[in-house]
């Protein structure tokens, strides 16, 4: 559920106009709230990539610390992506039982639990 910019370049090298139209469609149709969520997603992704590169290139020595950091990035990413799909007006039909406010409360609770475990695992 990341913003389409980065992976789209890697998946379809050929059609430049397709990416362009995609970007345009994204910019035009997406509500600003979702765009805000998307920037957070990009940030989380960059943070996760940075940690992963550090682990590969430098050391994975406190492996639990790496897993806690990386896991909290990934976990927060998917929780935020979940929130994004829950509050997306297009998905209203799928989430009949989850109002946007409820979705945010679920997101907050899930994040708290996730970070409790991540912090506990840092060691």
């Amino acid at each position: 559920m990341a913003p389409p910019k980065a992976p789209a370049t890697s998946t379809s090298p050929a059609d430049n106009s397709a990416i362009h139209s995609l970007w345009k469609a994204y910019n035009d149709t997406t509500p600003s709230r979702l765009k805000l969520i998307d920037t957070f997603l990009v940030f989380l992704m960059l943070s996760g990539i940075a940690q992963f590169l550090y682990c590969i290139l430098v050391t994975n020595f406190p492996f639990n610390a790496f897993l806690a950091g990386f896991g909290s990035c990934v976990g927060q990413f998917v929780l935020t992506a979940s929130l994004r799909s829950q509050v997306n007006p297009e998905n209203r039909g799928e989430f009949k039982d989850v109002s946007p406010e409820r979705a945010f409360a679920d997101f907050a609770l899930g994040s708290i639990v996730l970070h409790f475990f991540a912090f506990n695992f840092l060691g």
């Binding site: 492996f63 990934v74 979940s82 799909s85 829950q86 996730l114 695992f121």
Partner: peptide, 28 residues
């Protein structure tokens, strides 16, 4: 596939995996 599946599975896996590693016998 529905977005519900995504939400359910990802929230379970992300939190559950990190949580399961807290048990020393399970570890990494």
């Amino acid at each position: 596939y529905t977005s519900r599946l995504y939400v359910a599975y990802c929230s379970w896996y992300a939190i559950g995996t990190l949580a399961s590693m807290q048990v020393p016998f399970v570890g990494f």
